[in-house]
Design a protein around this nucleic acid. Structure first.
Lengths: 343, 343
DNA sequence: TCGAATTATGAAAACATTTGCAAAACTATT
DNA sequence: AATAGTTTTGCAAATGTTTTCATAATTCGA
């Protein structure tokens, strides 16, 4: 329908329209202070008339930054990652970057393939989620020299700067909380840990902490439940309706805990009187659910922002490379879903 | 740390290493069937040795597709958009596209600016969220000739192909449901509608439907509540603890409804005996909350997939342009949170 | 074993920019 | 009014590819 100006306007179209050379138009965009005002005005009008839009691809092959950052996450379907990405993207957008986003669904092979694609697009930097990645991914990153940060998880030493929360600490905190309340008959519900170092770290440290206090979790109280409210509701219901149920249930994340809360209710148990239920994460609804969920806050928004700041900085000023890791500390949030066991 | 091979490998580096010409290397990637196996093998090894990664920017300036799609949403913080984006991205990734993602936070000015940036990156196509956009946005899209689809919302006629659910229909369905149960004392809770055509459409049609049945919603039962469980919990609590409260509360989305459910409980009311509460959306947790939420399902995943299919198709085969809109029908999901009013 | 037909490869132009260098156009100074 | 100095602009080369056209290498039939 629209009048197709035969060809898309390029820089020489604009140059002709403004009766200047292409170089001058280029300077108009990149070093406007070098032009005299009259020329600037001419070009301004020519740009408007021709509908010219700069071509970053053409700039990029001159070694100029592409203005893109590759963001690689497991999935957006977990609200918590969506939140991190949102915060990250807002932060780097403010600095003029646009993000390339892709999710690997916990498939390490795909992660590598996606990273390659990002590099083909000549992203200026890359964010990966979590600390554990295929060795090939790290090597690829090493061989290119673009900055990379590992977001979400934190550890003292890591292959690239890590910005996130210490998941082991989070697990330890919640386990310690449950123990401190006096629970000894404790069940756990964790997501499948394959390809998911965060979940794995949390689970192991919870178990260790309990064990350290002399509490063994029997196998049939060690639930593995996929990330889904309905699944966790079902599993919790089944667990809690057995004879002699646990007095506390530690969930690997708040989604599982939310489902467990529903499951407890469906089993006719009250929380926290009959059973304490705790999560990890402090997701959006966790403070408002009834009863409000005791959990460990992982500061998603802050993590996204800090990662964005750090990466943008590393890109803009590559001299200050080797950026530092940053721990966004988890925090125990005690609410109504946990209490001392009835005796 | 890593041994920096002085310069990044480009196609001529590879060519030299393989003792062939640059053209041959180019063909190796784009028309491998033209090379004889021996040459292919030589280049294969040279690519590996040099660590060469193709430069899409350089291809793009030849008019070759960039392999990117710009996705423009209000925010990822609403789980429902995250879900749509995830489905969309999976669908187009399978076709080799990578997405550029940005959010405008309901700011029309920013939407325009982001679109321009997408175009500078020479995206092969664009997805916008919702039907309403600044006229400048539409004009810009018209002037470029890349395909665009409007995702999430549906209307019979729209500026570009629309793939989504009819929000007016959804609003009408939920209002009709509440009326059919016999309610007449009905309150509404909707998000701020500024810059948000979806919310606006829903609200207006709900009101119209109620009015059509002779039900007026008094001003003080017309709540405007930001998208947040805690806010809606508070507002609902306040509403429901007044003397002579409504027997039903229609919420503009499931997040508000979830908060309202908590608010009702906190006010000591039972749902649905004392008050029916319904939402729109059928978000992830809505079926599992206690009581399970009556709502109208907006098929986010399907919308994302269909939009992805349509856009990828329009890009790959531009002859079949002028793609059609597609209605992904909303569906009333009756669960426990709604019932006939007690009398 | 030769020439024709076919297949594989290379040289060079094209793509949309940026940039170093040099020329042109101004200003200021005398 | 001429010169020196400064500011503004244009030319041409460069960037990393793809592609057209031409040439070189191979295959095949006689």
């Amino acid at each position: 329908m629209s009048v197709n100006k035969t060809k898309k306007a390029d820089i020489v179209t604009v140059a002709k329209a403004a009766r200047v050379s292409a170089s001058t138009v280029s300077r108009y965009f990149n070093h406007p202070e070098l032009l005299k005002p009259a020329t600037r005005k001419k070009i301004d009008s020519a740009v408007r008339r021709t509908g010219y839009i700069r071509n970053r691809a053409a700039q990029t092959i001159h070694g100029i930054r592409s203005g893109t950052i590759g963001v690689l996450i497991p999935t957006l379907d977990h609200a918590i990652f969506a939140e991190v990405v949102q915060a990250f993207s807002e932060t780097v957008e403010a600095q003029g970057f646009t993000i390339l986003l892709a999710s690997h669904g916990y498939d390490l092979q795909r992660e590598y393939a996606i990273l390659r694609k990002f590099l083909e697009h000549r992203v200026d930097g890359v964010v990966l989620t979590g600390l554990d990645h295929d060795e090939a991914v790290f090597q690829l990153l090493d061989s290119q020299d673009i900055p990379c940060v590992l977001m979400w998880n934190y550890a003292a030493q890591s292959r690239f700067p890590a910005i996130g929360a210490d998941n082991e600490l989070a697990g330890q905190m919640i386990a310690a909380h449950v123990l401190a309340l006096g629970h000894r008959r404790i069940a756990c519900m964790f997501p499948p840990t394959f390809g998911n170092d965060r979940a794995l770290a949390r689970r192991d440290v919870v178990l260790d902490t309990l064990q350290g206090a002399g509490v063994e979790v029997p196998d049939h109280w060690m639930l593995q439940t996929v990330y889904s409210i309905s699944e966790s509701k079902r599993d919790a219901q089944q667990l809690l309706s057995q004879a002699n149920p646990p007095t506390a249930l530690i969930c690997g994340n708040d989604i599982l805990a939310t489902g467990a809360l529903y499951g407890a209710k469906a089993s006719g148990l009250s929380v926290p009187e009959d059973v304490s239920i705790v999560g990890i994460g402090d997701f959006k609804g966790s403070s408002d659910i009834e009863p409000a969920l005791t959990t460990v806050r992982l500061p998603a928004k802050r993590i996204g922002q800090e990662a964005g700041k750090e990466l943008a900085m590393a890109i803009v000023d590559p001299s200050a490379r080797g950026g530092a890791s940053l721990h966004c500390a988890p925090e125990l949030i005690t609410r109504q879903s946990s209490a001392a066991p009835a005796r």
